[in-house]
């Protein structure tokens, strides 16, 4: 009797502690997403004098034929995949370096975190300046090395603009990847490597056969976070290119933003949010599935 009483009170206290946080999360996450689903069934733009008029699935039919949107999906996918691969490679390299013991390691580890901590919008300004076609330091270095004769218009050329924003993104976020991977490296017991070396394995073989498999959970988690953030990239592109030149770096987020803010097309913007949300959920679910599989197989093997 009194046991169930205590349990009831504990339950009540639990709910009292959880509810405020839950309400804020529902307000800022659940409401906007639910609202987007609802609003996507309406036309609400300058044509309807910003009144919401029910229009069924017409917004989704419009997305189907919207070349600019699919172009932004392609751009976002290229940006995300290339940046992610580079971040994993560099992040792994940096983590391996920071895992070694050398004098001043603490300081170098601190320095390696700095890019992650800085505001993306502000570092986008810094990179715009580095890539400046007339006074930029990158062109200056390339010219001093004799690799080019005249300055390259990095942000003015469609392909090079994509390269530039990827470089800036890789710079900004590799440190996040390397922090996670370094934590993973530190949890691998050293004797595994020693035993492996006694068996005659080269460092490369040890990396392939011990480090990579044991690091798989961290690699997947870092990829998951980075994928989601890259797929919604906004600040960096907005500041560096604004989506240009000629839509070459137009990302999904910029397309949604201008649909809503510049063209005041709320219903269509909501449908774009829904489609982007569904794509994201699908990829996340797939990664979770992979993660579960890796965790299971690691549990069996070790």
């Amino acid at each position: 009797m009194s046991g169930s009483n205590i349990r009831d009170r504990q339950r009540l206290t639990g709910w009292v502690l959880v509810t405020p946080a839950l309400l804020i999360l529902l307000l800022v996450y659940a409401y906007p997403i639910g609202r987007a689903f609802w609003l996507s069934l309406f036309t609400q733009n300058l044509g309807t004098e910003l009144e919401a008029v029910f229009s069924g699935l017409s917004n989704y039919a419009r997305i189907w034929g919207d070349g600019a949107f699919w172009n932004s999906i392609v751009n976002t996918t290229i940006f995300t995949v290339v940046a992610l691969v580079l971040e994993l490679v560099f992040g792994m390299a940096i983590a391996l370096v920071l895992d070694r013991s050398f004098r001043g390691r603490g300081t170098v580890r601190t320095i390696a975190i700095i890019p992650w901590a800085l505001p993306t919008a502000i570092m986008a300004l810094a990179w715009t300046w580095i890539f400046n076609d007339r006074y930029g330091v990158l062109n200056d270095i390339l010219m001093r090395l004799g690799l080019i004769d005249t300055g390259i218009n990095w942000l003015g050329n469609p392909t090079l603009a994509m390269v530039s924003v990827i470089v800036a993104d890789v710079w900004k976020t590799t440190s996040f990847v390397s922090i996670l991977l370094l934590a993973g490296l530190q949890s691998i017991p050293q004797d595994l490597y020693e035993a492996h070396a006694i068996e005659g394995a080269t460092p490369w073989q040890s990396f392939r056969q011990i480090t990579l498999p044991l690091l798989m959970p961290q690699i997947l988690i870092a990829s998951l976070f980075r994928f989601a953030q890259s797929f919604g990239v906004f600040d960096l592109i907005q500041v560096m290119t604004g989506g240009g030149p000629a839509g070459a770096t137009e990302m999904v987020s910029l397309y949604i933003y201008s649909t809503v803010r510049r063209y005041l097309d709320f219903g269509y913007g909501a449908a774009l949010v829904v489609v982007t949300f569904l794509i994201l959920i699908a990829v996340v679910a797939f990664t979770f599935y992979l993660l579960e599989k890796v965790r299971k197989s690691a549990g069996v093997d070790i």
């Binding site: 800022v28 997403i33 998951l224 989601a228 797929f231 999904v252 949604i256 949010v273 949300f277 996340v284």
Partner: peptide, 21 residues
């Protein structure tokens, strides 16, 4: 699970609903 999943939502998905609010 919900808390874990929403950490992955980019803010662009939220800004339209929040703008209305």
């Amino acid at each position: 699970t919900g808390v874990l999943i929403v950490t992955l939502f980019p803010y662009i998905l939220l800004f339209l609903g929040l703008l209305e609010l």
